[in-house]
Simulated assay, not measured.
Amino acid sequence: MTNRLPHSLRADARDNRERILAVTRTVFAAEGLDVAMREIARRAEVGPATLYRHFPTKEALVTEVFTEQMATCTAIVDEGLADPAPWRGFCQVIAKVCELHAQDRGFTAAFVSAFPRAIDFAAARERALRKVAELARRAKEAGKLRPDFVLDDLIMVLMANGGIRTTSPAAAVAASRRFAALLVQSLQTEPVRPPLPPAVRLPLTVVT
């Protein structure tokens, strides 16, 4: 009994931390960074003391969530770069990054604005873009990616993807998947047209 107790406590603490981060990602993406720490604790079903034990300040909590998101983005790009088929890897990067971006719902912009010195976001972004550029180069050499594609096109894509407005987070992800599929088809050199993901009904009220 005594030997099992520390392990159990560590497991409980780990579960609490993961639940706090999961709730924080959802809350901040949907409602912004102004949500109070006590409200995050309530939704994560932990006491305020438990929340502050893991994350003494809101900046520490938000920075951890953002760091995890950056790690996810880096893993997506690395996975695409490691794919022996460059075009397939490129398509997967576009699709997954667009989906991640749709789930973000302005969180990155809000984080960078609120805590500009918390993490070197610019350097991490540049590293990721260099890897995408290398993947694009390989896809071009394989004859799959149109030769006039430039990295600024990807920036434009993410800007457009970030402008998707829907009635729910799930609809935003679904719309992003269709958008990414349309984009990929426009970038390939071969006239292959696989079926698109299902269309999503979007509110016309945001179109001016």
Rank of each mutant, 00 (worst) to 15 (best):
A118R: 00
I119T: 11
D120I: 01
D120M: 01
D120W: 03
D120G: 02
F121G: 03
A123S: 14
A123F: 06
A123D: 12
A123R: 15
A123Y: 05
A124V: 03
A124F: 06
A124H: 12
E126Y: 05
E126L: 04
A128D: 15
L129Y: 08
R130C: 04
K131V: 06
K131A: 08
V132S: 02
A133E: 13
A133I: 05
A133T: 09
E134V: 09
E134A: 14
E134N: 09
E134L: 11
L135K: 02
L135E: 04
L135H: 07
L135I: 08
L135C: 06
A136D: 00
R137D: 10
R137V: 07
R137A: 13
R138A: 12
R138E: 10
R138M: 07
A139K: 05
K140N: 00
K140F: 00
E141F: 04
E141Y: 04
E141A: 13
A142N: 11
A142C: 10
A142M: 09
L145A: 04
L145Q: 04
L145C: 07
R146P: 00
D148V: 00
D148P: 00
D148H: 00
F149Y: 14
V150D: 11
V150W: 06
V150Y: 04
L151I: 15
D152W: 05
D152N: 15
D153G: 09
D153E: 07
L154M: 04
L154V: 03
L154I: 08
I155H: 15
M156S: 15
M156P: 05
M159R: 13
A160D: 08
A160I: 14
A160W: 07
A160P: 02
N161V: 06
G162T: 01
G162A: 03
G162S: 01
G163V: 09
G163S: 13
G163Q: 11
I164Q: 11
I164C: 09
I164Y: 10
R165Q: 10
R165H: 10
T166V: 14
T167V: 07
T167R: 10
T167E: 11
S168K: 04
S168G: 08
S168E: 07
S168C: 09
P169N: 01
P169F: 01
P169L: 04
A171R: 14
A172Q: 09
V173C: 11
A174R: 12
A174N: 13
A174T: 07
A175T: 06
A175P: 08
A175Q: 02
A175V: 05
A175W: 07
S176L: 02
S176I: 02
R178Y: 11
R178N: 14
F179D: 05
F179A: 13
A180R: 08
A181N: 01
L182M: 09
L183G: 06
Q185Y: 01
S186L: 04
T189Y: 03
T189V: 04
E190N: 12
P191Y: 05
P191H: 11
V192F: 08
P194S: 10
